[in-house]
Amino acid sequence: MKVTIEENEETGKFTIKVKTEDGEEKTIEIPKENLEEILAKLPPNVEII
């Protein structure tokens, strides 16, 4: 699983794009305050880009 994290400076939010092993892609946008909480919940086999 690969996770790409991009900061949107205009909105102050982060866009998180997840690509699973089977090629499925999902995108979510979260507030900056929630980034550490989300990262802590990721499984250890995740590659963060």
Rank of each mutant, 00 (worst) to 15 (best):
G23I: 01
E47M: 12
P31H: 12
V3M: 03
A40G: 11
I48P: 02
I38Y: 15
P43D: 07
V46D: 00
E47A: 07
I30T: 04
D22F: 09
I5Y: 02
E21K: 04
P31D: 15
M1P: 07
T4H: 06
F14C: 12
N8C: 07
D22R: 07
E36V: 10
P44G: 08
T4F: 14
K19C: 13
E9D: 10
E24L: 10
E10K: 13
L39C: 04
D22S: 10
T20I: 07
E29Y: 12
V3W: 11
K13T: 15
T11L: 05
I38H: 06
E21D: 10
K26N: 08
N34Y: 14
P43Q: 01
E7D: 05
T15L: 11
I16C: 03
E29A: 04
P31K: 11
E25C: 09
L42S: 00
M1H: 06
V46N: 01
L39M: 06
N8R: 02
I49M: 08
K32P: 12
K13V: 13
L39H: 02
I16T: 00
E6R: 06
P31G: 12
E25T: 10
M1D: 06
E21Y: 04
K32E: 04
K13E: 10
K26H: 13
N45M: 09
V18D: 01
T27P: 01
K13S: 11
T4A: 01
E24F: 11
E37V: 07
K26G: 04
P31A: 13
G12F: 03
K17I: 14
G23F: 00
N34G: 13
I5V: 06
K26T: 14
P43Y: 12
I28R: 01
E29C: 12
P44L: 11
T11Y: 03
K13P: 01
K41Y: 07
D22L: 10
G12W: 03
K2S: 12
I30D: 01
E21F: 06
F14D: 01
A40N: 08
P44A: 09
L35H: 01
E47R: 02
A40L: 10
L35S: 00
K41Q: 14
L39A: 01
K13I: 14
V18K: 00
P44R: 01
T20Q: 09
K13C: 13
T15C: 09
T15I: 15
F14Q: 00
K2W: 15
E33S: 11
E21H: 05
E9I: 14
K17W: 14
T4C: 10
D22A: 07
K32V: 07
I49N: 07
P31F: 14
N34F: 14
E7T: 07
I30L: 06
I49A: 04
D22N: 11
I48G: 03
N8G: 05
E37M: 13
V3E: 00
T27A: 03
V3F: 06
K2G: 03
K26M: 14
L42V: 04
E6D: 04
L39F: 07
